[in-house]
Design a protein around this nucleic acid. Structure first.
Length: 483
RNA sequence: GGCGGCGUACCCAAGUGGCAAGGGAGCAGUCUGCAAAACUGCCAUCCAGCGGUUCGAAUCCGCUCGCCGCCUCCA
């Protein structure tokens, strides 16, 4: 079996993926800080790594995948204050919302979903050992990591300490020995969530929690660490520093994978622009499947632009697939239920999925799936014009096999046409009931039989104005709701 | 100022040394009472520009122009 190549942010190159233990993959991806609804950027990260994780499994790896919830943080505390409630309540509320959004997008549950607050013991332990080893120091109840204690600080982001400091954008904190030193442990103010520690009551800093959760659940060296590109500095840089200092083992993560950003109509999503797109708002306008297809239609490291146009295109692409399925089922009953023959398409599967082995190129795989869709339609067209169905069933079955295998890791094209159209119909406020539509279709077909095409066209027009589109097929008239 | 990325047709987007995937739009045709869908054909002699390396480059190197990200919480 061909090996998988991954782009490693640490080296800036594509490398052959060699896990620490053959056949096994340990993987950690930074999850959300749960102080608000998650946005389309979280969706991209989650969907990208979901596909990656599923592909490893598809390829037979034994995967242990963790994605955390940061449930103790300044923003959560602030939010709790404005809502007049506790951090715990805020965190729980948005963890639930995040989980719902992920489920809607078909993101599988990671094997482990640790919360920062559940690893406080480990955080204190790691912090303590960093002090003991001289990498961290205590200052009035705070504990800081000393970035100058390890020579290789900056190796992930390609920065060096002196240049960072000349940037002078780092706030100066008198308690720190060096402006770049970061908090491992923060003394808590009254009313804030806090835990007893050797340095008094306090709470963990941001970076240490991920290190602690990784060390606690996955070990000293993991295979893959993922997250958004923006986390490279300082978050992941700091994670590497503190983890490698604490364990004395290098590397902390063998491969670092970072996904690109989502822009909205060519602009960066930001609070100040007020263009943060929540996942649930996106789901109001588009099907989850179209959103997922859109996210996977570009390489995970490239920036992508979320626009009304690009989503409409994704929606059309999804519809093209289900229309083809619907047609296949109409012309070749039971084709969708039949067991496909995987051994018949071994070579095609290999060719179609090969791009995944080169840094998870989902975009190219999707392109290959559309070739299969064209192939299905072509076979059915030829059979119809020749009046000879011989061989078509196998042709359809083989293409379906390829698409369905891909859907195991892409997470799209995995529904029946009925489910798809039902979902689309339910998204539109229907002025007409299904029964009413069926009645009008029957009336129109009567008119067509009488060759009363004026009446027939009037009914088509009437339905169209209400968002219902008709299609006359050899098997009768079908209708769908315009998305 | 420092670090990094990107620039492929009307739009989106693969391609990472051997004669430019795929989706959308458009045009023409087949089919259809009409329409839609589907299918067929057309749609980048060229991959921001200029040099260089090479038998051969969109793909490697250099320079120029343009866009973007990070350096501060951030997926």
């Amino acid at each position: 079996m061909a090996s998988i190549r991954v782009f490693n942010s640490l080296t800036g190159e594509r490398e052959e993926f060699k896990p620490k233990e053959p056949g096994k993959v340990s993987m950690y991806v930074c999850g959300p800080t749960v102080y608000d609804l998650s946005h389309i950027g979280h969706a991209r990260s989650a969907v990208s790594f979901d596909a990656i994780q599923k592909y490893f499994r598809y390829r037979g790896y034994d995967v242990r995948y963790a994605r955390n919830y940061t449930d103790v943080d300044d923003k959560i505390i602030k939010r709790a204050a404005t809502e007049g409630t506790s951090s715990e309540v805020v965190a729980e509320k948005y963890i639930k919302a995040f989980d719902e959004d992920m489920a809607a997008l078909g993101v599988g549950l990671p094997d482990l979903r640790p919360k920062a607050t559940e690893s406080i013991g480990k955080i204190i332990e790691v912090t303590g050992s960093l002090i003991k080893k001289g990498f961290a120091y205590e200052m009035g109840g705070d504990v800081y990591y000393s970035v100058r204690k390890k020579a290789d600080y900056g190796k992930l982001s390609g920065k060096n300490i002196d240049e960072l400091e000349s940037g002078a954008r780092v706030e100066v904190d008198e308690r720190k020995k060096d402006p770049l030193d970061f908090a491992l442990w923060k003394a808590s103010k009254p009313g804030e969530p806090s835990w007893e520690s050797p340095w008094g009551k306090g709470r963990p800093g941001w970076h240490i929690e991920c290190s602690a959760m990784v060390l606690e659940w996955l070990g000293d060296t993991i295979d893959i660490h993922g997250g958004g590109k923006d986390l490279i500095f300082p978050h992941h840089e700091n994670e590497i520093a503190q983890s490698e200092a604490a364990t004395g083992k290098t590397p902390y993560a063998r491969y670092w994978l970072h996904n690109g950003f989502v822009n909205i109509e060519k602009e960066k999503m930001s609070k100040s622009l007020g263009n943060i797109l929540n996942i649930r708002d996106a789901l109001k306008d588009h099907t989850a499947e179209a959103i997922r297809l859109f996210l996977l239609s570009s390489h995970y490291r490239s920036p992508i632009d979320y626009t009304a146009e690009s989503l409409r295109e994704a929606e059309s692409a999804v519809e093209r697939y289900y229309k083809t399925l619907q047609r296949a089922a109409a012309e070749y009953p039971t084709i969708l239920e039949a067991q496909p023959c995987l051994s018949c398409v071994e070579d095609r599967l290999h060719d179609a999925f090969k791009p995944m082995d080169d840094d998870f190129n989902t975009a190219e795989v999707i392109g290959n799936l559309f070739k299969e869709i064209t192939r299905m339609n072509k076979a059915m067209d030829e059979a119809r014009s020749k009046g000879e169905k011989k061989g078509v069933w196998e042709e359809l079955s083989n293409s379906l096999a390829v698409i369905r295998e891909a859907s195991k890791f892409l997470g799209v094209f995995n529904r029946t046409p009925e489910e798809y159209y039902k979902d689309r119909s339910s998204r539109v406020e229907m002025e007409l009931s299904a029964q009413e539509i069926e009645r009008l279709i029957a009336e129109r077909n009567e008119a067509r039989k009488r060759k009363d095409f004026a009446r027939a066209d009037a009914i088509r027009k009437e339905l169209s104005e209400k968002g219902v589109e008709l299609e006359d097929t050899p098997k009768g008239t079908t209708w769908s709701v315009r998305g």
